[in-house]
Amino acid sequence: MTDPRRIRIVIVDDHHMFRTGVRAELTSLAATPRAGSVDLEIAGEAGAVESAVQVIKEQQPDVVLLDVHLPGGDGHGGADVIRACNGTQTAAGTPVRFLALSVSDAAEDVIAVIRAGARGYVTKTISAEELLTAIGRVADGDAVFSPRLAGFVLDAFGAAAGEVAEIDEELDRLSAREREVMRLIARGYQYKEVAKELFISVKTVETHVSSVLRKLQLSSRHELTAWAMGRRLL
């Protein structure tokens, strides 16, 4: 029996408890003897754009597990991390590869990080075993997507590229957090519900809503809902 291959990863997510859970699950699973197993090393963690860029450049991991919504940077979350690390290589001289791992399954989030250079995108409903397999595939240079998300990528870089570009032009005015708030408000959430969902204050929600309406040149949440529905963002 051949020795399992060694894969070094960095986990980037702004929720410490989630990073801890992923680390524990993957470490435990990788330590279980099984066919096709990998020798997994957690090389580092980060919870914001700037710290993520620093640890990735220092540790030069094979794969980065990357949340798409992160504080810091230019407000584009995981996409900012990928762009800042463009050209970073592992000790073996291969490119550092990025696998987005997010609670979001929104088309614009998927497209943004893939356009930035991620090799795959899976949602947080994935099992630990499926995630370990996805890490191995991305380390090999394959592209990996949760089944429903693959269509977004095909649309974005295929026949519907013009439509996606048009949507992105307006969405790019919003930060990652503003997009989260926008989507929830457009779905009918009250400010208190948005605050609870995103673990922020009601005052912060109000600030984000005002910013979203100003950037999109809208005057009410009703217009915002119509704007989002017209672009199939709900």
Rank of each mutant, 00 (worst) to 15 (best):
A30H: 00
A118R: 08
I111T: 14
R5I: 11
V64C: 09
S146Y: 00
P4H: 06
H76R: 15
C85S: 05
G117P: 11
V96C: 09
E50S: 07
G136E: 00
V12M: 11
A79E: 10
P95W: 11
A134Y: 07
T27G: 09
A84W: 11
G75V: 01
R34S: 13
V103P: 00
L40V: 04
I56T: 06
I11W: 06
P95V: 03
T123W: 08
G120P: 15
D105T: 14
Y121F: 08
H15I: 11
Q89F: 01
V22T: 15
P33C: 05
A52C: 10
G36E: 07
E130A: 09
Y121T: 03
P147I: 09
M17F: 13
S146A: 06
V122A: 01
H69T: 14
Q54Y: 01
A84N: 11
V10A: 13
A118Y: 02
C85M: 01
D109H: 12
R23D: 15
H16F: 11
E41N: 08
P95M: 01
D80N: 04
A112P: 04
I135G: 02
M17D: 15
A100S: 12
G73A: 05
V12N: 07
A107V: 12
E58T: 14
A79K: 05
T88K: 12
V12F: 12
V53H: 15
G44T: 13
A84F: 08
A52H: 07
N86T: 12
A128T: 01
P71H: 04
C85L: 02
P33L: 04
A79I: 10
G75E: 00
S102K: 02
R97G: 15
P33N: 05
D62E: 06
T133A: 14
G47H: 00
L99T: 02
R19Y: 07
G120K: 10
V38K: 10
T20C: 08
R83V: 08
V63R: 03
V55L: 05
V55H: 08
D13A: 03
E41L: 13
P147A: 13
I114V: 03
G78P: 04
E25I: 06
T94F: 05
A24C: 02
V53E: 12
S28R: 15
T88G: 14
V103I: 03
D62S: 03
E108C: 13
I82Q: 03
T20L: 14
D39C: 07
A118M: 10
T125N: 11
P4F: 04
A24I: 03
A112D: 14
V113H: 05
G93P: 02
I135C: 02
L65W: 05
A79M: 12
E108L: 04
A107K: 13
I7M: 07
G141K: 11
Q89R: 04
A46I: 07
L99V: 05
D67Q: 01
V55C: 06
E25D: 10
R119H: 15
P4G: 09
D142Y: 08
V22E: 08
T123F: 00
V38C: 10
L26V: 11
V10W: 06
E45T: 05
I114H: 00
G151V: 14
V55I: 07
G93T: 07
I9N: 02
Q59S: 14
E129G: 03
G44F: 09
V103C: 02
T20I: 04
T32M: 15
Q54L: 02
I42W: 00
S51R: 11
A134R: 06
L29T: 05
G117H: 08
V55P: 07
